[in-house]
Write a protein that binds this DNA or RNA. Structure first.
Lengths: 237, 237
DNA sequence: AAGTGGTCTAGACCACGTC
DNA sequence: ACGTGGTCTAGACCACTTT
């Protein structure tokens, strides 16, 4: 484990358990250097991650203030899999695999997903239920050249866990788009819903070497959708 | 201007104008050091910002690859004011100020906005129109102790421009939440819409010293709403 | 083997807030 | 005046990719 990650993890844990409560200051950078026996740069790297994630705010001349975490991360903030979210929130959810197929990308699908025409992809459709009620329908397309094997068992559990921990893939970044769309009859059936609208999240997901391995459409029941975000002002636009 | 900002701005501009086209590599860190006459750390700081914003992807042993920018930033990605967005996208938009009042925060409003009860805040209601059609209704609450003066003229133009460039305020970060809500009769009137739903974005906005100065509810017409995001996978959750 | 980015260190000076 | 974080530099070694 890298040193700055260890410092980050330790600080994060101490913030979570109120060793450093909200509204108070973290130790100074100098004190953290001594505490962990690392250089200032390493301390600053750890603090930079905490800052980026909205856990602290640094104020020049004053210190690093711990921020209140009033809002919970729910379904789609950042790039986190459904399984990881429900685990971290300890929600009672159930995943049902509706279908799993190996298909060939036609030109329409290529345009939508970003995959090459004539390439093969896995198409996985799954529903997510909370308290026995369907709240999300996910349709995943996974590059078959990057993900040679896909099974019902894997789709039933966590695809991301399989890709990262079994295949050793480096999932790096995603471009996503959120809109609200009218529902089709089929979507109403899958979502067990009469609503005229649903929230649609389209994502293209890439590996560390910039190869795209996934395209996903995530359809959320409109009253179950909540997106929480922490944003920093971008000076020097 | 800080050196790393100058390097960042220059690289960003060269990416935008295809001096460094998508899918190609930026010069090496060593070459950028020589080019700008700065240290490696400074180069890396600039590259870190480009990475964070999804403009490049660094691959060890290979270089810094320029990513395709297929998706445009629209209404609410990050922390950018409406005025800045429409300026950068060169949209034909019109802002209409519906009301501007100085009010006292009651306990309900305190709970909603995060402001202290009995404190005074400016309440500003504005509509945003594109092609003569209202697409967004913004309701802003601004701390009167931090923003002593507010006028129709300022509300008509850009409040953020006024706060940053006239008052010298350091707008730093925001927590936001996006949901879909049923519309009230009043909202349908303001949005000139028959829709049963709208997209609601609630934001609390803070200064660099962690004082909250703004709470905003932004109501988007459902078919005009589009949120685009770039996300990096958070290892070491 | 050579070249690239990733991590870590040590030290200097500056800008800002507090005392 | 002092302490804090912000910026910048120089150098070392490691990990990964390409030739």
């Amino acid at each position: 484990m890298k040193k700055y990650q260890e410092v980050y993890n330790d600080l994060k844990e101490k913030i979570r358990t109120n060793v450093y409560p909200a509204e108070t200051s973290l130790p100074t950078e100098q004190a953290l250097q001594d505490l962990y026996g690392v250089s200032r740069d390493t301390v600053r790297k750890a603090l930079a991650i905490l800052t980026e994630r909205g856990m602290i705010q640094k104020v020049q001349g004053r210190g690093s203030l711990v921020l209140k975490q009033e809002l919970l991360n729910f379904p789609v903030s950042g790039l986190t899999s459904y399984q990881e979210l429900t685990d971290s929130l300890q929600l009672q959810t159930k995943t049902e695999v509706i279908s799993l197929d190996l298909i060939v990308v036609n030109s329409n699908l290529a345009n939508l997903t970003g995959f090459e025409p004539y390439s093969k992809v896995w198409k996985v459709v799954r529903t997510r239920s909370i308290d026995g009620k369907v709240s999300v329908v996910d349709t995943d397309y996974l590059s078959a050249s990057l993900v040679p094997t896909m099974t019902l068992d894997i789709a039933q559990e966590s695809i991301y866990d399989y890709l990262e921990n079994q295949l050793g893939m480096d999932i790096a970044y995603a471009q996503k788009e959120i809109t609200v769309e009218p529902t089709s009859r089929e979507e109403r059936e899958l979502l067990q819903s009469q609503d005229d609208y649903l929230v649609l999240i389209k994502s293209r997901v890439y590996l560390g070497d910039t190869r795209q391995f996934q395209y996903t459409e995530s359809k959320h029941k409109i009253d179950k959708f909540r997106f929480v975000d922490f944003a920093r002002r971008k000076h020097s636009l």
